[in-house]
């Protein structure tokens, strides 16, 4: 019989539908995996409440497990503890950068209403001379930036804590 660790390793092959270079384990959305009443349960936490990728991820998990011979599996959505960008793995951050998306930087005081936008390095030329174009980008989890040095427009994965 397979173990929870085996299941987790299978899930490392499931990619995020919006950011295909990232796996769902890189993203940190897979929580507990456990066996109960003859069924494998995979707990999944959304990045944002309205993230439209969640249904696709659920379907992808079930089809991956089926491919590995596990028919009796269920995905359970959990909200608590709430997902934070701190759960994106180091490897995931590296993959984001290579894909052209700036990974989240630590924003010290998120509660301040009028804090300066965070200093984000351009994923193309690495310059820190960049500016925020809009707090909301191509998906709920990203902001839109532009590099002043090389002019590259890019997505920044917003810090969520």
């Amino acid at each position: 019989m397979v173990s929870a660790a085996d299941i987790r390793s299978y899930l490392e092959e499931v990619s995020d539908p919006e950011i295909p270079v990232l796996t769902i384990t890189d993203l940190g959305v897979v929580q507990q995996i456990y066996f109960q009443d003859q069924t494998w349960f995979v707990e999944l936490t959304p990045t944002y409440s309205g993230c439209p990728a969640m249904q696709q991820i659920e379907a992808d998990i079930l089809s991956k497990l089926k491919e590995k011979g596990i028919e009796n599996a269920q995905v359970k959505h959990v909200l608590s503890p709430a997902w934070t960008t701190d759960w994106i793995s180091e490897e995931g951050r590296q993959k984001l950068r290579l894909y052209g998306i700036a990974p989240p930087v630590n924003e010290p005081d998120k509660s301040a209403l009028f804090s300066e936008p965070p200093r984000v390095a351009c994923p193309k030329c690495n310059s820190k001379d960049t500016r925020m174009v809009s707090l909301f980008g191509s998906t709920a989890c990203k902001a839109h930036y532009q590099c002043n040095a090389c002019q590259e427009p890019f997505d920044y994965f917003k810090c969520l804590k």
Binding site: Y48, S49, G50, P52, V133, S134, G137, H144
Partner: peptide, 20 residues
């Protein structure tokens, strides 16, 4: 365009919250 995207992003968060 940026505001079109911002408003629909906020809409998505709100509707997501309503689902839960």
């Amino acid at each position: 365009l940026e505001e079109d995207i911002a408003m629909t992003n906020i809409a998505l968060d709100l509707i997501g919250q309503s689902i839960s």
